[in-house]
């Protein structure tokens, strides 16, 4: 049990010390938040709602990024450097190693959510009810699961360069067409039509509903769940194939 705790702690520390994580998942969302709520916010009617809405967008954007990129690239790195093979001769089981990674990521997501929420409260005095803060935070935390699964899918790639390139592109496409950078309403209608089916939109929309005093739509929940299973299946299928090839 001590081994598992130590492993979770080690995984968490490793993400915190990763400059990519600090830049993409903490700095960028906060900088974007300042730009889009302080600098360009001329003709928005309900300013308070927009500030809360965009805070949810940026928090989801942050969590998505660390789930896809930090996790995915790290898995590829560990494999190419021979580390994952080396772990297999220690008494720590593959499952415990993997679970520790997921727990480490989740702790980091929680940390990111708290930091970005705090930034929103300080920068724009965003005021939500305690229930809304809690529920939106929880929604984003749980909603990160399909993205973690997508991260493990990225993790099946052979080279670090490919993984970081591909995950970057996926991340940006998901963020933009899911309405995280700009509201969905101002997107071209074709992107809106595709966007509503993307996991990023469904993650964001749940939180956007919560801060408007509603509950997330059932569709948001079901689509995220569907993506979760899809990515888990795909990545375990590919991993099994890769192992069989040896």
């Amino acid at each position: 049990m001590r081994a598992f705790q130590m492993q979770c702690k080690a995984e968490t520390i490793r993400i915190l010390r990763n400059p990519y994580f600090v830049f993409w998942s903490l700095l960028m969302p906060i900088v974007f938040y300042i730009i889009f709520t302080k600098v360009f916010n001329t003709n928005i009617q309900d300013k308070q709602e927009w500030q809360a809405h965009y805070l949810m967008s940026m928090t989801a954007f942050s969590v998505m990024g660390s789930a896809i990129m930090t996790l995915g690239i790290r898995i590829v790195e560990e494999r190419t450097k021979g580390w994952s093979v080396f772990m297999r001769i220690t008494p720590l089981s593959d499952q415990a190693f993997f679970a520790a990674k997921m727990i480490g990521q989740t702790v980091i997501h929680l940390f990111s959510i708290l930091i970005i929420f705090l930034a929103g409260a300080l920068i724009n005095q965003v005021t939500l009810t305690a229930f809304e803060w809690l529920m939106s935070g929880l929604w984003i935390l749980l909603g990160s699961l399909p993205f973690l699964a997508l991260g493990t899918l990225v993790g099946t790639m052979k080279r670090v360069d490919t993984a970081s390139g591909v995950s970057n592109v996926i991340y940006m496409i998901l963020a933009i067409s899911g309405g995280m950078w700009m509201p969905m309403e101002i997107m071209p209608s074709i992107i809106q039509k595709i966007g509503v089916w993307l996991p990023s939109y469904n993650l964001g929309n749940g939180a956007w509903e919560i801060i408007r005093g509603n509950s997330p739509e059932w569709g948001n929940f079901l689509i995220l769940l569907g993506y979760f299973f899809l990515f888990v299946l795909l990545s375990s299928y590919i991993r099994r194939k890769q192992e069989a090839a040896v």
């Binding site: 001590r2 081994a3 705790q5 130590m6 492993q7 080690a10 520390i13 490793r14 010390r17 990763n18 790195e77 560990e78 450097k81 021979g82 580390w83 093979v85 080396f86 220690t90 008494p91 720590l92």
Partner: peptide, 20 residues
Amino acid sequence: EVSVIDALKVKEIIQLFRSY
């Protein structure tokens, strides 16, 4: 061809391994 784990201090890695 096994490199060391990144982002951890030498001391931390040794203690982590001892815990296994």
